[in-house]
Amino acid sequence: MAVKVPILKQGKVLIASIQEDLSDSDILDLQHRILEDVIRCRAEAVIIDVSAIGILDSFGTKTLSEIAYSVRLRGAKLVIVGIQPDVALSMVLLGLTLPDIPTALDLDRGLALINGG
């Protein structure tokens, strides 16, 4: 399967920037690669940028939470950045929230959150 989401390494931070609407298997592939890379690169933090995503439904949200909790168990931080206003609204109406998972407006603020906290 082609890699849909490149994971960039900047120092001890991994940045996964989602560029297009992902299928369920693409999201699972991303989950797998992030967890591998966190170990391989000894990363201390992961940022997932979802600003290009027009929809986050129950499966996408569930998988993002699973990624966040697994990364945390590795002793690293995870921040989700760029959830679009319409996406946020439909997530809340659907009953989906990301409890305990830090979020930030954009990549810059996500990096600030990691460096500051």
Partner: peptide, 14 residues
């Protein structure tokens, strides 16, 4: 509206 477009897409996705 844009929020309603997102809701339509989300419902279809589920």
């Amino acid at each position: 509206s844009r929020p309603d477009q997102a809701l339509v897409a989300t419902a279809i996705s589920e």
